[in-house]
């Protein structure tokens, strides 16, 4: 059950408790799910809060680049599909905030962290969607990369996170197909449309590969995360899976990947690709991507503009309660 009240810090126990920790690890090793009010190491709780809230923030910020094209979608069918898709991302953010809230933080706190610039979200959403083809590329590549990450999370050791991910993956299944269909239509269209599709692939390919994070050699949180079965595969493993799945899809479209080193390696059975510019990733994460400022500005504006609405809803709820109490007393 997802309740805040049950997850007081005291219930989680002292941070250093080798006996509890050993028992906890044994449960995790035995593939038993950890539930909200179970004992858990403080570091496990913190790791989850960070990861789940970053994931939630990514869904919410991710609504912006795609939402950008809802009013300009070229047909009514595309308009409805895109709106439903971006709405889904909002829903996914909601499920994830709720999962994080089982760990003794409120959504309000998490949102504050995002708006104050203290929390991170996926670097990919700091890139602009410049043409309609970008909507196709985001669905095909960005959602495709996200699915690679998310499917193993359905088996994550923390119950509420795993359950949220199962629901998300189920809903997500139309997103990538929606994107691929857009790109496919463009790549079969006029010369201008084909150029639009190629341009989108050129701009989104490398940032999509960066979504898997730094290479395994540099990743900070991986060890613990793997030991606690929050994470099941390393960044590089997932990235390779994504490349192997995506390259044939791109070739089918008749598009070219912006990587001269991309080639199929018969010996390993995998697609080999060129070096990723991790400096660009570091810059985008540090706030220097093309749209970091705009994205945060849009989130802050929505939050600030909505404050009076949330206040009104709370004020009305209080009035209603006190009226009911008065009526009962009378």
């Amino acid at each position: 059950m997802y309740t805040q009240a049950l997850n007081t810090r005291e219930a989680i126990g002292p941070v250093e408790d080798p006996e509890h920790e050993a028992r906890f690890q044994a449960r995790v090793d035995g593939e038993e799910k950890v539930e909200p009010n179970d004992w858990m190491p403080e570091a496990y709780r913190r790791l989850l809060v960070r990861q789940i809230s970053q994931h939630a923030h990514s869904e919410i910020v991710g609504m912006l680049p795609e939402g950008n094209w809802i009013t300009r979608a070229p047909t009514l069918r595309r308009k409805a599909a895109l709106l439903a898709k971006v709405q889904d991302e909002g829903g996914h953010g909601l499920y994830l905030y709720a999962a994080a809230e089982t760990l003794d933080v409120s959504r309000e706190e998490l949102v504050e962290q995002l708006l104050a610039g203290k929390a991170k979200y996926s670097s990919i959403f700091n890139y602009p969607t410049l043409t309609w083809a970008d909507i196709g590329a985001v669905g095909w590549l960005v959602d495709g990369a996200a699915i690679m990450n998310q499917i193993p999370l359905c088996r994550c050791s923390y119950g509420p996170y795993a359950r949220a991910m199962i629901r998300i993956c189920k809903e997500e299944s139309f997103h990538q197909r929606q994107g691929y269909e857009i790109i496919l239509t463009l790549s079969r269209g006029t010369a201008e449309q084909k150029a639009m599709a190629q341009g989108a692939l050129n701009r989104w390919w490398w940032p999509s590969l960066m979504m898997f994070g730094p290479s395994d050699k540099e990743s900070q949180h991986s060890d613990k995360s793997m030991r606690w079965k929050v994470k099941r595969f390393s960044n590089d493993e997932l990235r390779q899976k994504f490349v192997d799945a995506t390259v044939p899809q791109g070739l089918y479209l008749g598009l070219t990947f912006p990587d001269p080193e991309l080639r199929f390696d018969e010996a390993s059975g995998h697609w080999a690709f060129g070096a990723i510019d991790f400096d660009e990733l570091r810059q985008v994460i540090a706030g220097n991507g093309p749209c970091n400022h705009e994205r945060m500005k849009a989130r802050r504006k929505a939050h600030d503009d909505g404050a009076w609405v949330r206040e009104a809803a709370l004020a009305y709820a209080e009035k209603r309660r006190s009226r009911r109490d008065t009526a009962r007393a009378a």
Partner: peptide, 12 residues
Amino acid sequence: WCGHAPMLEEDI
């Protein structure tokens, strides 16, 4: 409004 509503529930 998509992505800009006063709260997530209302956005949806």
